[in-house]
């Protein structure tokens, strides 16, 4: 599903965020990327999601080599992923429902179908009752659940998250972990970059540990 070979990412100025890392993630696995701040977790997530490109090495997702991908093909690759960020990247000029409908509009679904599927996704994360609320009126945990609903509404093959519980209290963080576990149980591949110990315990060894850009 995801195969990285000798992956290196060097930023302009010479800073090497990732150096010569190789790993493989099978379909349906739940894998954690851990490490201290600056270890390269976010960079790796961005490479997998094609938000950034590797300097060298290859990264193959669903049989497609992302390193050799044309620029115009990148949006279609990203649609295979459900992306969740630490800062959620929600849009505060529209309702929770409209936020979740955005990936469906991008995929070209009719408005009627988009509403139906967005409501189902909101129901899944327990936010259907708040569909008309502006995200700014939601708590931190609810905002993260809304971001998850937006990530899963297009039925992605990979759920990719960067520190999804970093700013949440313990109870909300536990809710989020359980949501991810639910998606993992139904066969979705889950890749989470985190330094939260609760996740490490849940994943029981399925961990990619980074240190100064190297896999240890």
């Amino acid at each position: 599903m995801i195969v990285a070979s000798n992956l290196t990412k060097r930023y302009p100025g010479g800073y090497e965020a990732l150096r010569d890392i190789s790993f493989s993630i099978d379909a349906g696995e739940m894998v954690l990327i851990t490490g201290h701040s600056g270890a390269g977790k976010t960079t790796l997530v961005k490479l997998i999601a094609s938000i950034e490109r590797p300097t060298s090495g290859s990264l193959v997702v669903n049989g497609q080599n992302l390193s050799a991908l044309r620029r115009s093909a990148i949006p279609y690759v990203r649609r295979h992923f459900g992306l969740i960020f630490q800062d959620q990247k929600l849009l505060f000029d529209r309702s929770a429902l409209d936020n979740v409908m955005l990936p469906l509009h991008i995929a070209g679904l009719s408005h009627k179908d988009a509403i139906r599927r967005a409501q189902a996704a909101l129901d899944k994360v327990g936010l259907l009752a708040r569909e008309k609320a502006n995200p700014i009126a939601l708590s931190g945990g609810e905002q993260q659940r809304l971001a998850i609903a937006r990530a899963v509404v297009n039925r992605p093959t990979v759920l990719l998250a960067d520190e999804p519980t970093a700013n949440l209290d313990q109870e909300s963080a536990q809710d989020i972990l359980e949501l991810f576990a639910d998606f993992h149980r139904v066969g979705v591949t889950v890749v989470v970059a985190t330094h939260d110990q609760a996740w490490v315990e849940y994943c029981q060894g399925n961990v990619l540990r980074l240190d100064h850009g190297r896999l240890i």
């Binding site: 949006p75 990203r78 990247k89 505060f92 991008i106």
Partner: peptide, 16 residues
Amino acid sequence: AAEIEVARMIGATDAF
């Protein structure tokens, strides 16, 4: 800007 950034990250094409 915020909407464009998010839309690009979740798979919007330039045409969209």
